[in-house]
Design a protein around this nucleic acid. Sequence first.
DNA 1: AACTACCCACTGGTCAGACCAGTTTTTGGT
DNA 2: ACCAAAAACTGGTCTGACCAGTGGGTAGTT
Lengths: 252, 252
Amino acid sequence: MGISQEVSFRLERLILDGGLAPGQKIPSERQLAARLGVSRAIIREALHELQGRGVIETQHGRGSFVANLVPDTDDHHDNSPLMHLFAGHPRTLYDLLEVREQLEGQAAELAAQRATGGDRHRITKAYRALEATDPLSNAKPDHGFHQAIVEASHNPILVHLLNGLKNMMLLTVHASVANLNPRAEMRQLIMKQHKQLYQAIMAGKATTARKVAMAHVRFVQDSLRSLENQGAEVIRMPLNSGNFHENPTKRY
Amino acid sequence: MGISQEVSFRLERLILDGGLAPGQKIPSERQLAARLGVSRAIIREALHELQGRGVIETQHGRGSFVANLVPDTDDHHDNSPLMHLFAGHPRTLYDLLEVREQLEGQAAELAAQRATGGDRHRITKAYRALEATDPLSNAKPDHGFHQAIVEASHNPILVHLLNGLKNMMLLTVHASVANLNPRAEMRQLIMKQHKQLYQAIMAGKATTARKVAMAHVRFVQDSLRSLENQGAEVIRMPLNSGNFHENPTKRY
DNA sequence: AACTACCCACTGGTCAGACCAGTTTTTGGT
DNA sequence: ACCAAAAACTGGTCTGACCAGTGGGTAGTT
């Protein structure tokens, strides 16, 4: 193992084992270099590695600080490699929606073809709940409705994939965007889409259901895009870079 | 954001977008530095960050390689709920193909729209290799061809999902079925489909490419079904197949 | 005394070039 | 055709310099 790795391990050990609390400042690069008897370049490489792991955060001119690594340990499903790929790559969100458009369309089509009595009942129930929630609806009813449809496709693979994609979405997109329907027009459009989807599935119109579902996803896609063009911050950057601009680390 | 971070993002993006396969070598530090117009130190810091995230692995004297991030996510093949579905449920294979039909179709469509010069070159190369293999071809060239197409879609999510599905296929379907083209007619049909797909993508005919790709998957589906009706044992039950997971990940 | 401007001593960020240490390829002699 | 030395790669480390933000302190102003 190279010196660089050794240093990064040593630093990590130091941080985890002992005195250094989240938010605390770690010695400057030059100090570390002198104290550990290595060049500053090595220190920088080691720090970048820790940064990649989300152990520390660095601020130009101020120093490096121990990151809040609590979330890192308790839900480890969002540090999956795929999530990392995602972090901070806005385009990937659209890649996601691109795929989702297909799968959601297929789910709707299959649901229209295959929904049993029980499925129809569940879908209807979810749809009514969707209609009921008026103004500041959270995303839950929406999710329930789509979930019921997907399950009615009777394709476990599809259920699984869409579930995964949805989780990624939720992790990536600001919650506020998830219910991006503060504007009345938009809410009405979405409700109309839901209604069309519901009716198509209930009528067993597979092709229509597919089209409507795909249009729905595409609509969401376009909405996000236009939001983004308006300067809204759509993507949430996990762990590093994101929050220290707007929310500088507390001083001590 | 510093140049270093920018570079690491750019590299990460390159890895995903270019669909660089796990295990694949990335350019040397000096090459990257020259090509991106930054110093080697920056490249090293960026690489260390990616290393910290587990995106790449580095070997002294040899180079840096794209880490196996897929196995990490599909490493659940033991405890994944998805795998449980498979055990003893032949129908799941068809569910799989059902979804795959969609995604392959989309991949082909996007490839036709987005393939760059490099993509076209890779696809052509894979296609020639496919043509060359005459009789008892193993599945590798076929896989290479499809893989090249999927990667040309420039949608990392799609790449990831199809990769996962393909792995499941391999785990589920008897190898003998993978090359289910002992019969000349069948082989010719498949080759014809490949040709059509290749030409459509090269010609940039997105809709045609999608249709052909979907038809191809459906053809495989039908073939498997008819094989099954002839009494062949198509499904391999993962649970009692002993050591199937000793080495599911491909080497490079 | 309070406020502002400025300077200076920090911090991290980037660069250039050199050399060491492994690996792979090329080469040259048998 | 073979095998071993040499050359041409690869990453690993060091050095010393300079740029770019940050913060504290100090001198000058009000």
